[in-house]
Design a protein around this nucleic acid. Sequence first.
DNA 1: GATTGACTTAGAGTAAACTTTAAGGTTTAT
DNA 2: ATAAACCTTAAAGTTTACTCTAAGTCAATC
Lengths: 126, 126
Amino acid sequence: MYTIRDVSEKTGLSAHTLRYYEKEGLLSSVERTPGGFRQYTDEDLEALGLICCLKNTGMNLREIARFVHLAQEGDKTLKERVALLREHRESVIARMNEMREYLDKVTRKLEYYSEMQRAYESAGER
Amino acid sequence: MYTIRDVSEKTGLSAHTLRYYEKEGLLSSVERTPGGFRQYTDEDLEALGLICCLKNTGMNLREIARFVHLAQEGDKTLKERVALLREHRESVIARMNEMREYLDKVTRKLEYYSEMQRAYESAGER
DNA sequence: GATTGACTTAGAGTAAACTTTAAGGTTTAT
DNA sequence: ATAAACCTTAAAGTTTACTCTAAGTCAATC
């Protein structure tokens, strides 16, 4: 069992953000101590791992919440979850290909600038 | 010479966004007709190409504006611009590597789910 | 020359994802 | 037993990047 602070340190998400995620339905039914403090389990940590993974590949919180809700409904939503993940995967791959192209353009610009800079500096030396 | 509408169509940015970018200093001194309408040149289009490229690789508008301002100051800022682009390039590469790892995780999750789904469906057939 | 449609501005509004605040209850260490 | 640290909630505030609105000006066509 982990406190919100433990989980914050493990995940890199702030305690504020963890509460916010719970409120938004990204994390379901976190246990509480008799005093009302959150007690996270290993399963919660694992769920957070997937949440971060989806978030960091560009899925928005609403979609993540939808995914989590499907998971709660059990095996009958497996097909839908697979479809959702597959679609997300495709969009991430597309995004990465797009970025690769843009990166090439940045690289070319950089080479052009480096060349200009060399010319400028050697002109200054004279 | 292009109208704001032409440029909107060519770049995929809305006319609103083009005006906004200009206001934020991303695009400098767009020419006007006697009546006050914007007239974009080919150089403006090229500058917008670089802006979109930087934006689509995750640079925020403030940094892009800074880059544009440096470019306006001429050759003496070449070194700084090279440094800025180089740093950006590194961060894009890091981002892509990170995404690749997250994508692998999504892929593994997807494979696991697909397997579960197959098992679930074959159980349903019985 | 009047109508229509595109353009102008300043400024308000929006969405997403936090982040902070205020007011108060709980645990732990001294 | 009391202070310090940590937790609770609801709700307001922030940031980024737009997006829309209102009121008016300009250009092209009938």
